[in-house]
Simulated assay, not measured.
Amino acid sequence: MTDERDAAAESSDHGPFHTERAVDLYADRMADAALFSQERTAVERYFTEPGGSVLDVGCGAGRVASLLADRGFDATGVDVSRPLVADASDRRPDLDFQLADVRTLPFESATFDYAVFSFYGLDYVLPRAERLAALRELYRVLNPAGVLVFSSHNSWHPFVPLSGRDLLQALKDVWDLYLRPKNRDRLLSRYKVESVPLGEVEIYLSNPIHQWLQLRKCGFTPLDVVGRHDDVRRFFERDPHYVAKK
């Protein structure tokens, strides 16, 4: 099993998130590191065990793990990017950061009270079968009644802008995900090519109903969709954060 996990991590060692440019970008984001408002709400609402163990999946430079550790949680971080794991370890040598793939985590079953997969990380696990494998693996490593929080792209967002600023982002997303040449033949597909600061990456495009069905398929009980808004508008935000319980 260890060999399989090492092989999975090694085979993922490519792409824009595995470069020194990625390290520089994440370093800039760490300058004024803070939990996103949705993350903060989810943590304060659902991470109720003081000192509970947390797995930060797709930890990058360690933003979430570091901030949760500072709140008193026992935080561990994993990422498939070797340069980012090294950077996170250098920043916080007191925390455990490991090179690992979310589909083959190097932990025993029922190890963590909580898991966080931020910054759309799950959407980069392709194809759909691998996305489901990732969710099932997270289910495995969570303790009974453990809680998972993650963000995902929302296919509903471009068509229900919530503000003037949202409208500009919605128009950009319509062009980026539907109209530009690389995505025109993917109009009805959940697989899109997205432009990000590090280049272009393929993503899986979900929405609240679709995502809740996937969570149930993988054994989870969906608890909440957390957004910047507390009302129905949160279902149409660009980056809804999902909360689910084992």
Results as ranks from 00 to 15, higher is better:
Val78Thr: 10
Phe117Gly: 03
Asp185Phe: 05
Pro181Thr: 07
Pro83Ser: 05
Ser66Val: 01
Thr76His: 05
Arg82Pro: 12
Asp79Leu: 01
Ser151Leu: 02
Arg186Val: 05
Leu179Ile: 12
Val125Ile: 10
Arg140Ile: 12
Leu95Thr: 13
Glu130Asn: 15
Asp101Cys: 02
His153Gly: 15
Arg165Pro: 00
Val141Leu: 09
Arg184Glu: 04
Pro127Gly: 08
Pro158Ile: 14
Leu148Arg: 09
Arg71Ala: 01
Val64Arg: 08
Gly77Met: 06
Phe119Val: 13
Val78Ala: 11
Pro158Glu: 11
Gly60Pro: 13
Val149Asn: 04
Asp176Thr: 08
Asp79Glu: 03
Phe159Gln: 06
Ser81Thr: 11
Leu126Met: 07
Asn183Ile: 07
Phe150Met: 15
Pro144His: 10
Ala100Tyr: 02
Ala129Pro: 02
Leu135Ser: 11
Gly146Thr: 11
Lys182Glu: 14
Leu84Phe: 05
Ser151Asn: 05
Leu167Asp: 10
Glu137Ile: 12
Pro106Ser: 10
Gly72Asn: 10
Gly58His: 02
Asp74Phe: 04
Tyr139Leu: 08
Ala75Ile: 01
Phe150Val: 12
Asp166Ile: 15
Phe119Lys: 00
Tyr114Trp: 02
Ala86Leu: 04
Tyr120Thr: 13
Asp94Arg: 00
Val80Leu: 13
Leu187Glu: 02
Thr76Arg: 03
Val147Asn: 04
Arg71Gln: 00
Leu188Asp: 14
Leu167Val: 10
Leu171His: 03
Leu162Thr: 08
Thr76Phe: 01
Leu95Ala: 09
Leu138Met: 15
Pro106Thr: 12
Arg184Ser: 04
Phe150Lys: 03
Ser163Ile: 06
Thr76Ile: 10
Tyr139Ser: 15
Tyr178Glu: 04
Phe150Trp: 12
Ser152Val: 06
Ala100Ile: 00
